[in-house]
């Protein structure tokens, strides 16, 4: 009896022992930075001096004295709401087409996936710059077809859209995820709908979309979180320009922290971004709770 109890306790301790690396990592590299950042957000702190508590001064500066704060915030929201829906809709559309039982699907799936493997790589940003500059390949091709050229990167009205295109081009990983979810939708649902005489588009909205809604939801959420923090494209391709039209929030954060070394102010900025992401996540959860379908009733 005693042996058994001891064995059980022993095993419980072992469990903690195995997850210990994560507990330490979490405390040192996630929890501590989070807390430190919250503290710094209320200080004046530029690496060389010790942090001086200044109350809400950083936030006051941000909201009342920093036009670039609003500019970068607006740009980021525009970017997020341009790139994420475009990317998701493209991925979903292509996945639905690929899900029909046609020959050679795997080949197309591979091709569409390739751009995603490079993610936010610098090489891809360089490529984008070459392709979309005023005398770049895209405009020259448009010229061949006598289509008016576009100032893809040098017009403040278009540049952010051109950056979004880069993100949309990498729809492959979302597509693969949707494809896997589509394969799980039971065939008999469609057969039942066939008897009822439902059209393809009708079926998509009444059967397909509800059945894959949990995957869709998770995907949109992760894409949102990532898009809010996108940096490489805006930094390498346009460096925030022209006229700050691609000056995203992550660039603002980078400049304050690592160009001007205003660590306190940068931390305050990062908390605004964090709260914004949290707010959108919460809003999105609310919305999706109403529309998401879980086969198992949603229990975790």
């Amino acid at each position: 009896m005693l042996m058994k109890v001891r064995k059980k306790i022993n095993r419980e301790m072992l469990g903690y022992l195995y997850i210990l690396p994560w507990i330490l990592g979490f405390m040192l590299f996630q929890l501590y930075p989070l807390m430190a950042s919250l503290f710094y957000a209320f200080t004046d702190f530029s690496i060389t001096n010790t942090p001086v508590f200044v109350g809400f001064a950083n936030f006051k500066t941000m909201f009342f004295n920093d036009p670039l704060f609003y500019k970068s915030l607006g740009n980021t929201l525009k970017y997020v709401f341009m790139s994420v829906p475009l990317k998701i809709v493209t991925a979903l559309l292509v996945a639905v087409i690929l899900n029909q039982k046609l020959k050679g699907i795997n080949f197309y799936r591979t091709i569409y996936y390739i751009p995603s493997i490079f993610g936010g790589s610098v090489a891809i940003s360089i490529l984008w710059r070459f392709l979309f500059m005023d005398s770049g390949m895209v405009n020259r091709l448009l010229g061949v077809f006598h289509i008016p050229q576009v100032q893809w990167l040098s017009s403040p009205k278009v540049a952010l859209f051109t950056l979004s295109l880069l993100s949309v081009w990498q729809f492959g990983s979302s597509m693969v995820l949707f494809l896997a979810a589509l394969k799980q939708v039971p065939e008999d649902l469609y057969e039942a709908a066939k008897i009822d005489g439902g059209s393809g588009i009708h079926n998509f909205f009444t059967i397909t979309l509800p059945m894959i809604s949990s995957v869709l939801f998770f995907n949109v959420l992760m894409q949102l979180v990532n898009a809010f923090q996108d940096f490489t494209g805006a930094f390498v391709i346009t460096n925030g320009g022209p006229l700050n039209s691609t000056y995203l929030f992550a660039l603002k954060l980078y400049d304050e922290a690592f160009t001007y070394y205003k660590m306190g102010y940068a931390c305050a900025l990062s908390w605004v971004l964090f709260l914004l992401i949290l707010a959108f996540t919460a809003l999105f959860f609310r919305f999706s709770e109403a529309v998401t379908y879980y086969e198992d009733g949603g229990d975790f």
């Binding site: 590299f29 501590y32 930075p33 989070l34 690496i47 954060l253 931390c267 990062s270």
Partner: peptide, 18 residues
């Protein structure tokens, strides 16, 4: 922590690593 944005960790991490 999957949802924890890198943007909020990077400055304090930089200071810590410094």
């Amino acid at each position: 922590t999957l949802m924890l944005p890198n943007a909020i960790l990077i400055i304090p991490r930089y200071l810590l690593f410094n």
